[in-house]
């Protein structure tokens, strides 16, 4: 029995097969419409989530399966103090597969340890969010027709952003990847990530201003810079504009440089960019459904 707890749980070869399946599901959705007939997904969301929960549940519905669960801890037995281990033991008796989001880091690891059904980590605090990483990889593969030989800019809050950490770890397994980290000094990529890249001889550069480097990028992955991450208001006001993507900055980028964002977007991408054909963040959401469909089918061993 397989689970998805971190993006590295699947080898590069296994990911290739997963993405091939996702592409096939996108092109021939009707072929897979009854793949999960009679199967049930338990979605165990201990904290609020819009995209991830709806995306996973949509994926199961698209495959003909059914969903059940809770969308906040208050309406679950966690409110009575039940452990994750006991909850998943119980849910294993009802459902065929479970997706769990929990505010505590490592909660999905614990769930997998005690589960009798496949577990999908739908986000465990600031730790891992592997289905987002799979979404990002599938999107990049579709936009650029490859996952190697790319210069990828990651911009914004690189210190606390779990999606960028997971994405760097996952992309580091492909050939000839060059990273460009663009962030305020306070929010630069943590040492353990840069040490990981140093150890593997993977190229990266660090910048403070997006416009200095946007012209070199094949892809730009934007994240939100939150006011509360700054030590003082003065620095926030001074730096925030460096990390807002607008039409002017886009004019400096290559014609085939796509923009991704894990969403929700607040103001770090101006709405004027949405009509630019290189703005790919809403297509990214659609890819997220296909990759989760492929994941559910793979973990249930139906393909």
């Amino acid at each position: 029995m397989r689970h998805l707890i971190t993006p590295l749980d699947f080898s590069v070869g296994e990911l290739d097969r997963l993405f091939d399946l996702a592409d096939d599901m996108r092109e021939h959705q009707e072929r897979y419409a009854h793949l999960c007939d009679g199967k049930k997904l338990a979605s165990l969301f201990y904290e609020p989530s819009t995209r991830t929960r709806l995306s996973i549940e949509t994926a199961m519905l698209n495959l003909g399966g059914r969903t059940m669960g809770f969308s906040d801890a208050g309406s679950s037995s966690a409110a009575k103090g039940e452990s994750v281990a006991d909850t998943i033991r119980t849910v294993s008796c009802f459902a065929d597969i479970a997706a769990i989001r929990h505010p505590k880091e490592g909660a999905a690891t614990v769930a997998a340890q005690f589960s009798r059904i496949p577990v999908i980590n739908a986000g465990d605090g600031g730790h891992q969010h592997p289905t987002q990483t799979l979404t990002d990889l599938l999107t990049i593969r579709n936009l650029k027709n490859r996952l190697s030989s790319l210069t990828i800019g990651l911009c914004g809050d690189l210190k606390f952003g779990r999606t960028v950490h997971s994405l760097v770890n996952a992309l580091a397994r492909y050939q000839d990847i060059r990273f460009v980290f663009i962030s305020p000094p306070e929010l630069r990529m943590p040492d353990y990530i840069t040490e990981f890249l140093d150890d593997r001889g993977i190229h990266y550069e660090e910048y403070i201003r997006l416009e200095e480097v946007i012209g070199k990028l094949d892809l730009l992955y934007m994240t939100r810079v939150q006011r509360e991450r700054f030590f003082n208001e003065e620095d926030y006001v001074r730096l925030r504009n460096f990390y807002i993507l607008d039409a002017e900055k886009m004019s400096l980028a290559k014609n085939d440089m796509f923009v991704l964002h894990p969403l929700p977007r607040v103001n770090e991408i101006s709405v004027e960019v949405d009509n630019d054909p290189r703005a790919a963040y809403f297509r990214q959401v659609q890819f997220g459904v296909y990759v989760r469909m492929a994941l559910i089918a793979t973990l249930l061993e139906l393909v």
Partner: peptide
């Protein structure tokens, strides 16, 4: 000692560390 770790609240979970580097 990470206050956000599940092992700080889940009962009877063995404390396990792995050699990462």
């Amino acid at each position: 000692t990470n206050p956000r770790c599940i092992s700080t609240i889940e009962q009877e979970l063995p404390q396990i560390f792995y050699l990462a580097d």
